[in-house]
Design a protein around this nucleic acid. Structure first.
Length: 837
RNA sequence: GCCGAAGUGGUGGAACUGGCAGACACGCAGGUCUUAGGAACCUGUGCCUUCGGGCGUGGGGGUUCAAGUCCCCCCUUCGGCACCA
């Protein structure tokens, strides 16, 4: 584009501007001006109101790509709009530079993670600056900087003190490729969220955050977030937390003092219970099994342990299990039932034991059928139902078997009432109670990988787990230069003998550091707090500043983090609030999830060879055109198929807008008052609507309105009021300001050509003259039997009677009525008349 | 199976509380100016039409003077959850 020559005859202003030159010209000017530096004092003094605009910080695993370009382009529209509206906007950026994505990329490139990571950060920083996002670079940090992770470790210790961080032995998700454990949230359809390898289970002692302590609040607050958060994400979190209401029911098992408690959501089906099933991998099963059945049980357990998660999750394979040889007593009916072990019951949900009701539950039905256990119907099937295994909804027909006397009568009651009565009965008997269960599990945070914050705990043979004292933080990651950092299943930190072997802070005896590192998501669970006081060396964050800037007024990112980062950050916020470190309940007041950039209907990927390089697009069309393309393509939430959009069209439009600035023939500062009224009205209407559209995140329509203004201004110059009319200057200046949200280089260039100083980004939103929003005439539609037959130009304050009369007098309307009798006339002044014959 | 979102021209997408469906673009067609056009500008572009008009927002019903928008049923696509008892 830069070599395009101007050969246009007759109009010297119809040149095209040099994209590269304009970018090179303004970048250093902005660098010097720092127009987007957020000042704490301005907010503290009340001089301006604050806005906190946050967009997800990148992993430094390469240069920026199309996805980054999209999210920052969208985000920047809002941030720059808020500046123009007179807010003090904090719009920080940094790097999420610990963790698997960066580490794996480094290993692939045969580099030490630290070198590789920091090299990429430099590359991305330069790209961001060229891309001209309104970030406040004075606040940047990297989560892998010791000054940052010192405080990540500090926060871990506060969690530990509160019992919110703990260690336990449990079967955990294991990624055989990345050679590390994974949180539940990082397992998608039985595979590793990062690399796609099939996840297996391992029994390991690992660190957890007690997210379940906040399950109910995390769920409840979603109601408040619903109006301003992406519905997709709210829905995903609700499903993930997975609240269910039911009951705990105690079954006495022979040969055991403590009863075995089961969890059920349908206590009303207790009369249909014909067996009990226990999760085969739960300690309870091992405890209950009789000596005679032990061999069979252990063989079965071995078989189950060899299954992958994917096999285990499959619901369409036949049920398996083994009889544990003991019997349990139904606390309501007193009936004796067998106890089995199976893999379809989960050890870590509910109590790991279930009452088997084959007449009411599909899975129990399948199990009973395979094992030859009795089936008792519990609900009334529809009249046309044939068979024995109906398990749908319907009035309960639960009642005790013949000869059993029970004081609980729920036969024929609706399910909800039957449940309530059964729970009340169990409660009174002392054999059960109503309870609530969540699908959400605690967050497994240890990782057996190098690139992360070391867990600041020392294991002492005498004192057990001993926290590293605060004044010894950070526990710095050993450099391990020259060591093999490839994943091997145990943390590479274990190989750093000098680092590992320390004396116990309590007793001074020989002890070892915990060698695992923290999940990257720990780093990102509080980074938005650190931005408020990024260079404070005395504390993780300044609570006063956090309470002043927070919570974030907008957060934009991808919904792949719906149940990961977004849930963890919410958990951290609530936990820190309860520690008195901050005063709000939720970190992100509004969340906008942006779609993906795809190509030809498919995700961009190396293997498909359909990747579109951001650098290539920027070189061909320039920053502004790429940004405009991304913003204009669709609503922010929708995916953008690069094959469907036109960056060349965007560039064409920008050139068109730019050309207007060369046509303006009035002097800077000319009052628009005497300008062409029609153009002035359009200008003011456009500003008014554009503001509203940005507020509701309809950025694509905002661009469309700007295009209309450009088109109308072009017409006004060429065949209307002419280039010297003050309204033309007003319109073009408005275009420059509107474009400053999307295409900062062109906007700045236009602003200069209009005779102004930089920077257009901070000149302020144009003031709308309300008088100019009033229209002199509107088009009223006249319908006959719902079909449009005429359009009338009428005054906006025409009376209903006058409008009706005008409509009935219209020639086309008379023809359409064709002499038929008028039954009814609906008049909605000044917009519409509908005549019914 | 459970929960949620969405279906509008050849394409991306507009349409505020029910009130002119298809804004703004892309693409395509024609034109003006040009040595030239992958430049600029102008015109046209939902479908059908006997040029009166008729039909059109996934399908079928309904409410209403009036439905892309509200209600019921169905179909399709996408997303979340899922042997969670």
């Amino acid at each position: 584009m830069s070599e395009t020559q101007d050969h246009h005859q007759g109009n010297e202003d119809a040149a095209t501007y040099d994209v590269e030159a304009v970018q090179a010209k303004w970048q250093p000017v902005w660098e010097a001006l720092e127009p987007f530096r957020a000042d704490d004092e301005v907010v503290r003094s009340g001089a301006r109101e604050k806005k906190y605009a946050l967009t997800m910080f990148p992993y430094p695993s390469g240069d920026l790509h199309m996805g980054h370009a999209e999210v920052t382009a969208l985000h920047d529209v809002l941030a720059r709009y808020w500046w123009q509206r007179g807010y003090e906007v904090m719009n920080p950026m940094g790097w999420d530079s610990f963790g698997l994505p960066a580490e794996n990329a480094a290993i692939r490139n045969d580099a030490h993670p630290a070198d590789y990571t920091y090299g990429n950060i430099d590359t991305q920083l330069a790209s961001f600056k060229k891309y001209a996002v309104s970030f406040d670079w004075s606040r940047r940090f990297n989560t892998s900087d010791p000054e940052y992770y010192r405080w990540t470790q500090w926060l871990f210790l506060r969690m530990y003190e509160k019992g919110l961080a703990y260690r336990k032995n449990s079967p955990v998700n294991w990624c055989p490729n990345d050679q590390t454990v994974l949180a539940n949230e990082q397992v998608v359809d039985g595979a590793c969220e990062r690399c796609g390898a099939v996840v297996t289970k391992r029994e390991l002692t690992q660190w957890y955050f007690r997210t379940t302590a906040y399950a109910q609040e995390l769920l409840d607050s979603l109601d408040d977030l619903e109006p301003t958060w992406s519905t997709k994400v709210v829905n995903a979190q609700r499903n993930w937390i997975g609240r269910s209401e039911g009951a705990h029911v105690d079954f006495v098992v022979d040969g055991r003092d403590e009863p075995v408690t089961v969890y059920t959501t349908r206590p009303d089906t207790i009369f249909g219970t014909t067996f009990m099933v226990v999760a085969v991998d739960a300690a309870l099963a091992d405890e209950l099994v009789t000596d005679e059945q032990r061999a069979a049980f252990e063989a079965y357990r071995e078989e189950v342990r060899r299954e992958t998660e994917i096999e285990r999750l499959s619901t369409d394979r036949p049920k398996t299990g083994v009889d544990l040889g003991v019997t349990a007593t139904n606390p309501v009916t007193g009936q004796q039932i067998p106890v089995w072990a199976t893999d379809y019951v989960l050890a870590d949900y509910g109590t790991g034991a279930v009452m088997g009701v084959p007449g009411g539950d599909q899975r129990d039905f399948e199990f009973a059928t395979v094992m030859g256990l009795p089936i008792v119907r519990t609900t009334q099937p529809p009249a046309d139902f044939e068979g024995d295994s109906y398990s749908g909804e319907g009035p309960t027909i639960n009642s005790p078997a013949a000869g059993v006397e029970v004081a609980l009568d729920i036969n024929g009651l609706p399910v909800a009432e039957a449940k309530a009565r059964t729970i009340a009965f169990l409660d009174q008997q002392g054999t059960g109670r109503g309870t609530v269960n969540f699908r959400l599990r605690d967050w497994l945070l240890s990782r057996q990988r190098y690139l992360g914050a070391p867990i600041p705990i020392i294991h002492c043979p005498v004192d057990g787990e001993v926290p590293v004292p605060d004044d010894q933080l950070p526990v710095e990651l050993p450099a391990l230069r020259g060591a093999d950092l490839k994943p091997k299943g145990v943390s590479p930190l274990g190989g750093a003998d000098e680092w590992v072997n320390v004396s116990c802070p309590k007793c001074g005896g020989p002890a070892q550091r915990d060698t695992d590192t923290m999940d990257t998501f720990v780093d990102s669970s509080w980074y938005f707090l650190r931005y408020c006081s990024p260079h404070d060396h005395t504390q993780a964050f300044d609570s006063d500043l956090v309470n002043m800037w927070g919570p974030c007024d907008i957060y934009i990112g991808g919904d792949e983090h719906a149940v990961l980062h977004l849930l963890y950050a919410r958990f951290f916020t609530k936990a820190l609030r309860d520690m008195g470190l901050l005063s709000f309940d939720e970190p992100f007041s509004a969340y906008l999830s942006q779609g993906k950039v795809i190509n030809n209907g498919r995700k961009m990927s190396k293997s498909l060879g359909n990747g579109v390089s951001l650098g290539g697009q920027l070189a061909e069309f320039g920053v502004d055109a790429v940004r405009l393309t991304l913003v204009f393509a669709s609503p922010p939430e929708d995916n953008i198929d690069w094959a469907d959009v036109s960056p060349s069209g965007a560039l064409k439009f920008l050139q068109r807008a730019w050309r207007l600035s060369g046509d303006v023939a009035s002097a800077p500062g000319t009052s628009p008052d005497s300008g062409d009224i029609a153009l002035r009205k359009l200008t003011h209407k456009t500003v008014h609507e554009a503001g509203q559209l940005v507020e509701v995140h309809r950025f694509n329509v905002m661009v469309a309105r700007t295009m209309e203004l450009v088109n109308a201004t072009r017409k006004a110059i060429d065949s209307g009021c002419g280039p010297a009319d003050p309204a033309v200057r007003e319109a073009v200046e408005t275009v420059a300001i509107l474009l400053s949200l999307v295409a900062p280089y062109v906007a700045e260039e236009m602003w200069e050509r209009l005779g102004h100083e930089p920077t257009v980004a901070r000149v302020g939103w144009p003031v709308v003259d309300e008088a100019l929003l009033v229209q002199d005439s509107v088009t009223a539609v006249v319908q006959v039997k719902g079909k449009v037959r005429a359009r009338l130009e009428v005054s906006p304050d025409i009376s209903e009677a006058d409008l009706e009369a005008a409509a009935l007098a219209d020639e086309g309307v008379v023809r359409a009525i064709d002499g038929a009798a008028i039954r009814k006339v609906i008049v909605v002044a000044p917009k519409l008349v509908n005549i019914v014959t």
